[in-house]
């Protein structure tokens, strides 16, 4: 079921959307500031993970955050909420 119908016969009766990661494309390109994690400072409180609106932070095995730069929109909530300031926002440079 998880594919786009090609012909009219394959079309569902009503409009039906398919769950897809990146339905708006790679939203990481919206970003101006990029969050960088200092893992030696991180206390594994996982607050950045629960507060991330873009689902761009995954909790690793040891509860430390891993940021997905393909989808992070660079809002800066993680850096603002980190109790030990282990996340800093750095300006994106042109490659």
């Amino acid at each position: 079921m998880n594919r786009i119908p090609k012909t009219r016969k394959e079309m569902p009766i009503t409009a039906l959307s398919i769950p897809t990661a990146g339905s708006m494309g790679k939203t990481g390109s919206w970003r101006t500031f990029r969050p960088e994690v200092n893992y030696s400072k991180c206390t594994r409180c996982t607050l950045c993970w629960i507060y991330c609106p873009d689902v761009a932070i995954t909790r690793q095995e040891d509860d430390s955050p891993k940021i997905d730069y393909e989808y992070c929109k660079g809002c800066g909530i993680c850096a603002n909420e980190c109790p030990v300031k282990a996340i800093t926002m750095c300006r994106e440079e042109k490659e």
Binding site: P19, T20, A21, G22, S23, M24, G25, K26, T27, W30, R31, C45, T46, L47, W49, I50, Y51, C52, P53, D54, V55, A56, T58, R59, D63, D68, E70, Y71, K73, G74, C75, G76, I77
Partner: peptide, 24 residues
């Protein structure tokens, strides 16, 4: 917070603005 599931049912790359409260 640590007891909450790691499973995500809101997929990454959605169309909310950066810093969206409703998305959280």
């Amino acid at each position: 917070v640590k007891e909450l599931s790691k499973e995500e049912y809101l997929l990454e790359g959605h169309a909310a603005c950066a810093g969206c409260g409703p998305a959280i």
